[in-house]
Amino acid sequence: MRWRRALWGAMRTWRPGRIGLTEADRLVAGDPPSPGYPGLGALLNMAKAPASEEELAGERAAVAGFAAAYRGAVPASVPRGRRSAWVPLSAKGVAVKVAAGVAVLAVGGTAAAETGNLPAGAQQRAHRMFSSLGVPAADSGGRSTGAGPAGVAGSVRPSTSAVPTPRAGGTTPRSSDPATLAQCEAWDAEREDPRGKAMTAQAHRALFAVAGGQSRVPAFCAALLTPSPDGRPSAGVAPAHPGAATATPSHPGGQGTANGNGNGHPTPGSHQESHGTP
């Protein structure tokens, strides 16, 4: 009995020792591990290596998405009507660039990759994001190359096409289709509460078909369900700076959940609010 305990003790001291809380905290802080753990430091350093080009390739699409989604976060009191028009100018700038990128992709599939303008990952992602728009290549190319004052006015349309809003497609009356909207709402409700009333497989398929594939549904529906404030001045009178958007009273205390007090879903209130607008 005693020898067994002694042997056990010896084994414990002989082994490099399992990582304890203190050692774990050291490792988390970035300190090199004790010699007893070969490979661990290397592994952790690989996991937190600096960002790769591919990881950052989606920036333009992300910023375009931000512009659209942020716009949709306008308080519910803003009347919702014709979905169009009010886009901050800087969003247009981004949008025109993105639209130009789409044109490049649409016109010459591999051209962008050859010229090195877009990393392969970005190209794929952009293609995935925008191919649901159905924008004719020649058409969008012509619009996005418009320059000068006329170009700015002309850019309003392509700019809405930069966010995955189907109505900009021109070929697609489907966004005004209440059935599609309802499908998106059902899909969104299903995502929020998977145990709730499920969509039929047929409804799923229909929505996937309209969105251009299952993977495109989130962007498709996000654009469709995001209410945009109307009654706003359109292009010509639009605020010259995105900062002007802050003129809209943001409701700082309105979303306590947004500030992280550890309860359930991040921001259930605002999420529904942006969808439930009549």
Binding site: G65, F66, N259
Partner: peptide
């Protein structure tokens, strides 16, 4: 990740906190 950023963008207007809080959020 794209969905995450879209939702964050949608709700960012009401965010009231510093960088560490934002990161956690």
């Amino acid at each position: 990740a794209s969905e995450t950023w879209l939702q964050a963008a949608r709700d960012l207007r009401g965010f009231d906190g510093g960088v560490p809080a934002f990161r956690a959020w």
